[in-house]
Amino acid sequence: MVSPILSMNQATIKHADLRQTLNTLTQAGYGSVGLWREPVEAVGVPAAVRMVANSGLRVSSMCRGGFFTMPEGPERRASIDDNRKLIEETAAFGCKTLVLVVGGLPQGSKDLAGARTRVSEALAELEDDALAAGVTLAIEPLHPMYCTDRACVSTLAEALDIAAPFDPKAVGVTVDTFHIFWDPDVLRSITRAGREGRIAAYQVCDYRTPLEADPLLSRHYPGEGVIDFKPLTEAVAATGWRGDIECEIFNQAVWDTPFDEVARRVADTFDTYVAPYWPAC
């Protein structure tokens, strides 16, 4: 039986279209799914909303907004507008969490501090939109190896500092084990995130070395790597946060596995390595 708090992020079965994803998860006994915009937009948002509603699945998050670290100009304006569109799409599913991968260094730049400032400026522009839609913009700190190309925010503390000026209903954080397990201050940061009401998503997968040739595809099933899920999961639970926990895996071998097998493997590893440390699982 699949844990009632387990959600599988759609990226874990990347090659499945939306209908295949929903069918796979409902047949496997899941109660929740984390959506990605591309499969949603492939069928159109109104049709996707109907499909999800008919499946009976909850939507734990929408992935992903962000990528707004470029300097002012047409590209940045297009990015801000695109994030406004994504806020509306997230709300259409009754989902309250839009995960943000904020972006790295603009081409030719070495100014990380400037990139982080532009993240804050973008959030200031989007705060009212998020509040009006009832959607939390969940900053996801990424592992430092992605600092220059994907996310100039690498630690949970840094994400919380950026979020601090904004209403917690509008701007929160994503706690992803793959990206933050290494941080010696991570447990204190999780406690702080709970105290400040900023946790919007908890995502789990494992990290192991050597990394894949493409480091982006180096995420693994829980239990296959070096992450100790006990302290991280207990710390999130201790904050009182009680959303669905997503398993999100980017890995070519996983993507090449039949969808139903992936769904079973995710459920089994979650039950073994994560669920025992969550209340009443």
Score class of each variant (00 low, 15 high):
66 G>R: 00
277 Y>K: 12
126 L>K: 00
278 W>F: 15
95 C>E: 10
126 L>D: 04
202 Y>C: 07
152 C>S: 12
215 P>C: 03
243 G>A: 02
195 R>N: 14
232 L>S: 01
118 R>T: 03
193 A>S: 10
214 D>G: 00
266 V>L: 10
77 R>A: 15
202 Y>P: 09
14 K>V: 08
246 E>S: 14
133 A>D: 09
250 F>R: 11
88 E>W: 06
200 A>M: 05
183 D>W: 04
93 F>M: 03
128 D>C: 01
92 A>L: 00
130 A>K: 08
242 R>C: 05
221 Y>M: 00
128 D>P: 00
20 Q>V: 12
196 E>A: 14
49 V>R: 05
27 Q>P: 08
38 E>S: 12
260 D>M: 12
35 L>F: 12
120 S>K: 15
6 L>F: 09
7 S>K: 10
40 V>A: 02
49 V>E: 03
11 A>Q: 13
159 A>M: 01
150 R>Q: 13
30 Y>V: 13
85 K>N: 13
237 A>M: 11
233 T>C: 13
48 A>L: 10
126 L>H: 02
72 E>H: 13
171 V>D: 06
115 A>L: 10
229 F>R: 04
172 G>C: 12
146 Y>M: 11
158 E>Y: 06
176 D>I: 05
254 V>W: 04
224 E>N: 07
13 I>P: 04
118 R>Y: 08
263 A>T: 09
110 K>H: 13
267 A>R: 06
71 P>A: 12
120 S>E: 15
173 V>E: 05
247 C>Q: 02
128 D>W: 00
77 R>D: 15
234 E>D: 09
240 G>H: 08
138 A>D: 12
225 G>P: 06
149 D>H: 04
97 T>N: 15
72 E>I: 11
221 Y>F: 01
252 Q>S: 09
190 I>Y: 02
163 A>T: 12
97 T>H: 10
132 A>C: 08
63 C>G: 03
213 A>M: 08
195 R>V: 13
3 S>M: 06
93 F>G: 02
63 C>N: 15
260 D>E: 15
49 V>K: 07
204 V>I: 09
46 P>Q: 13
121 E>H: 07
26 T>I: 07
212 E>A: 15
205 C>G: 00
220 H>I: 02
71 P>R: 09
184 P>Y: 11
155 T>R: 13
205 C>T: 02
130 A>M: 11
243 G>K: 01
228 D>W: 04
78 A>G: 03
133 A>N: 10
67 F>H: 10
59 V>H: 11
189 S>R: 10
201 A>K: 14
122 A>K: 06
136 T>E: 02
36 W>C: 08
34 G>C: 06
262 V>P: 05
169 K>T: 07
188 R>E: 14
45 V>C: 07
93 F>L: 05
213 A>C: 09
102 V>D: 04
54 N>Q: 14
74 P>D: 11
213 A>Y: 07
68 F>T: 06
143 H>G: 09
112 L>A: 08
118 R>C: 08
256 D>T: 07
